[in-house]
Each structure stands twice: as structure tokens, then as C-alpha cells.
Amino acid sequence: MVQHRLPMLPSAGDVPWVASVNGVEKQLNIENNAILLDVLRDQAGSLGTKRGCDMGTCGCCSVLVNGEPRLSCLTLAAEAEDCEITTVEGLAEGHHLHPIQAMFTECGGSQCGFCTPGFLVVTSALLEENPSPSDEEIKCAIEGNLCRCTGYQQIVDSVRAASEILTSGESVADSTSPKSDPHPGFSRE
């Protein structure tokens, strides 16, 4: 018996596409049926945006479109044209991590880390809107994201810790600042 499958839809051809990705204007030629996730990963250089399921169930591909969390695997790139797109790579300022990033490492919010970009993007949007959310509000914000490692508890802890940092107005130290001196106890004049 020979297996027959349906032919694939023909590509509809390339179209120009402009959007701001993490503050940088990207002018690309994309297929007009392209999915935002594919454009971000394959053309806009955002490999931090992860593909987990391709059907909007896991939340790994979450990005911010004009500040709103969106599942990029269910978003046509054309929908995000001329928009401001923020991915996980756009959260830090130079070598100063966003508090939510720092707290995900400090509080165990990230284990294998594959779902982490999605969680970070979604919770940074939450904190932008509501700098001191309750646990219930945090849970509602991340209900569309699946994590298989942490059981979510330390993720909620991380968001709470980040919210404390944000409300106190502190910022995270530059990661390039000098590390431990192997020859301590000596004053260098």
C-alpha cells in the first residue's frame, strides 16, 4: 500500500516586513504566510525565543508585541508588522539584567531553562503593569506557560522577589564587574 499525503500549500512569495525587534528596526523579506516565531528565530536572530509545541499550548514562544504578551507560534508575522516586539534578549540593559532575570536564577525559577524565556517575557509585562502583584495575580499571568521542571513554585517566588527589587528602585549589578580576587588581603595603591 502506498501512502499519499496532501501536497503542501505553495509559498505565496516574499513580502517586505518591517518591525522593531528589541529596539532595533528590522527590515526583512518574509514569506507572506510566515509565522512570527519563525521570523524571529530564523531571520531576526532571536534564538532565545523557543519553540515548544507550535500550537499555543506551552508558552515557550511568548514575546511582547507592543508590550502585550503574545504566542509567537500562533501569530502571523504580518500581524506584528510595524510593531515593537520584545523578546527575552531585549529584557536586559547591556550587562545589567532585568530584576526578573536575576531573580529567576537566584530563586530557582529556571532549571532546564527552556521555558524560561516565555516566563520572563510574560512576567516582565506583568510587573510593568502591576509592580507589586499578589501571588494569585502572578499565577494568572503565567497560566498560559508550561514548565516541566520547577512545579512553578519557585517561579512565583522569583516574580515576587523581582517585584520587591523593582518597587525598591534597586537595579541589578553589571555582570562584568570584577569577580573574586585570587590574591585577597592586599591593598593595591
Partner: peptide, 21 residues
């Protein structure tokens, strides 16, 4: 102790299987 590779993960710089290009 925070995971020593945690910062790669939270910045999106951790390369998983499909990220090797």
C-alpha cells in the same frame, strides 16, 4: 546556590538543540 549556567538561560543565550545554527 543559583545555577552556574543560569545567566545563559535567562538572557536567551543558552543554546539548545535547535539553536545550533
Amino acid at each position: 546556590t543559583a545555577l552556574v549556567d543560569g545567566r545563559w538561560k535567562v538572557t536567551g543565550q543558552a543554546q539548545y538543540g535547535d539553536d545550533i545554527r
